[in-house]
Amino acid sequence: MAQETLLKEQLNGVLRITLNRPDKLNALSPDMRTELLSALQGAQDDPQVRSVILTGTGRAFCTGQDLNDILPDSSGKKPDLGEVLTQHYTPIIHCIRQMKKPVICAVNGIATGAGNGLVFACDMVIAAKSAKFIHAFSRLGLVPGAGASFHLPRMVGEVRAKGLMLTGKPLTADRAADWGLVWEAVEDEQLQDVALNLARDLAKGPTSAYAMTKYLIQASADSTLEDQLTREAEMQRRAGYSENHKEGLNAFLEKRPPAFK
């Protein structure tokens, strides 16, 4: 029986999606990319899913594109790597970024190539202390993809982003946490528990407010202050009329934990 390359597990409002090609360091095959996009789209559409965890099995989180799938064919024709990104990776990155629910990446090991693109697209990152982030595109004579050149400079600054991407030197989980690239670096054996506890806490929260908060933060990257103030007012208007705000306010006044829906 063939091994499942993508595992899905629903846990009290949390959907955990696990990349499962440990023998290939979770390199993304065409089928795996299709399954991942489908799982993410399903999470967005499923009202029982209120937060998502993306993680991997084995000693790597994800080493990006499976290079065996982009070798020249028997006639020597090379694949259009720009088309590979546009058709297969761009939809995944957009789906994570536009998800109206929190998405947590639990980085269990090495992340390279488009694997880093997946990490950076997520809302929060918990990394095992053995994890390393490696931008190896330059070693192959290629450029960063899967949104990495957009997200990384905004997370760690232009100088550090250039340093990582030009040299290809690994970044440890502890240093990534110091730089603000990850929310927390934890002992390897604690990774899944820490990520699941965080996801469960978020799953109990006001999902509609989370969605609007994500939108505001992401929009701020290319916004003027005046535009952002206008967006904040509009989102606050919507939030103020929501059932989640009504419940949060009532819970505060009644001195009880809120029960968001």
Rank of each mutant, 00 (worst) to 15 (best):
residue 82 G to F: 11
residue 35 E to N: 15
residue 30 P to W: 02
residue 43 A to K: 00
residue 47 P to S: 12
residue 75 S to C: 01
residue 189 E to G: 07
residue 244 N to K: 07
residue 242 S to H: 12
residue 52 V to Y: 03
residue 206 P to H: 01
residue 108 N to F: 02
residue 85 L to R: 15
residue 50 R to P: 12
residue 229 L to Y: 00
residue 101 K to P: 07
residue 49 V to F: 04
residue 101 K to N: 05
residue 205 G to V: 00
residue 103 V to L: 05
residue 105 C to M: 11
residue 223 S to F: 03
residue 224 T to D: 07
residue 227 D to Y: 10
residue 90 T to F: 07
residue 2 A to V: 14
residue 31 D to V: 11
residue 121 A to N: 03
residue 90 T to I: 12
residue 238 R to P: 00
residue 19 L to T: 05
residue 191 L to Q: 01
residue 186 V to C: 11
residue 163 G to V: 03
residue 257 P to G: 02
residue 41 Q to W: 06
residue 199 A to Q: 08
residue 238 R to W: 09
residue 126 I to C: 04
residue 239 A to H: 15
residue 246 K to M: 13
residue 183 W to R: 15
residue 79 P to L: 03
residue 8 K to S: 09
residue 164 L to C: 03
residue 59 R to M: 10
residue 163 G to T: 07
residue 47 P to I: 04
residue 61 F to V: 00
residue 73 D to M: 08
residue 159 V to W: 03
residue 31 D to C: 01
residue 223 S to I: 01
residue 254 E to D: 07
residue 38 S to Q: 15
residue 24 K to N: 06
residue 241 Y to L: 15
residue 33 R to K: 05
residue 168 G to V: 00
residue 112 T to V: 13
residue 164 L to N: 01
residue 211 A to K: 02
residue 102 P to D: 00
residue 40 L to G: 04
residue 230 T to S: 10
residue 8 K to I: 08
residue 8 K to R: 14
residue 107 V to L: 11
residue 64 G to K: 00
residue 63 T to V: 15
residue 149 S to I: 11
residue 133 F to I: 03
residue 235 M to E: 11
residue 224 T to H: 03
residue 92 I to P: 02
residue 241 Y to W: 13
residue 14 V to E: 04
residue 155 M to F: 11
residue 228 Q to S: 12
residue 138 S to G: 06
residue 197 N to Q: 11
residue 114 A to S: 05
residue 222 D to W: 15
residue 30 P to K: 01
residue 107 V to S: 13
residue 23 D to W: 15
residue 84 V to P: 02
residue 69 D to I: 02
residue 17 I to H: 00
residue 88 H to E: 12
residue 117 G to P: 02
residue 42 G to Q: 04
residue 162 K to A: 14
residue 238 R to F: 10
residue 120 F to E: 01
residue 47 P to R: 05
residue 243 E to I: 14
residue 167 T to I: 05
residue 138 S to H: 03
residue 258 P to K: 05
residue 193 D to E: 12
residue 159 V to A: 15
residue 32 M to H: 05
residue 172 T to D: 01
residue 252 F to W: 12
residue 90 T to D: 06
residue 92 I to G: 04
residue 68 N to T: 06
residue 83 E to H: 14
